[in-house]
Amino acid sequence: MIPESLRHELQQRVAQAVTPREAAVDVLKELQAHYGWLSDEAVVEAAAILGLTPLQVEELATFYEMIYRRPVGRTVVHVCDSISCWAMGGETLLSQLEQRLGIMAGGTTADGALTLLPCSCLGNCGDGPALMVSEQLHGPVTLDSALKILGRF
């Protein structure tokens, strides 16, 4: 359950919107920030706040790359796998990260600290290969500088 203060905050956000569901993505993001991922419980809570059915919320939640419908680590490492980063060695970087972190793309480290996710272009193409960690863009990164950013060096 989310705290009453957060529920109140989200209800206010919804009240300011042109229509309640205009605020849907904001509400999903806030709930995700609270739980770490968008749990089933969060989907039901979002539906109640937005005046939608859980199915309508699910339709949205499964659409977006940055809404996680499965548990993730405390930090999610997004590795761009689109064309400019690919040209600059992005594939190699991803497989090196898999090796050093001991997880496959999509997986989470045993200590629950990191999840490694390939993703679409981050809009940092001039500085490829690029990463996004905690909403922060990085690039160009090497294996060493990536591990440093992740505090694993």
């Binding site: 689109s82 400019s84 272009c121 809009g123």
Partner: peptide, 11 residues
């Protein structure tokens, strides 16, 4: 939205 790979001008 600027998600077309290779594009980062708007950012």
């Amino acid at each position: 939205d600027e998600m077309e790979p290779g594009t980062y001008k708007d950012r």
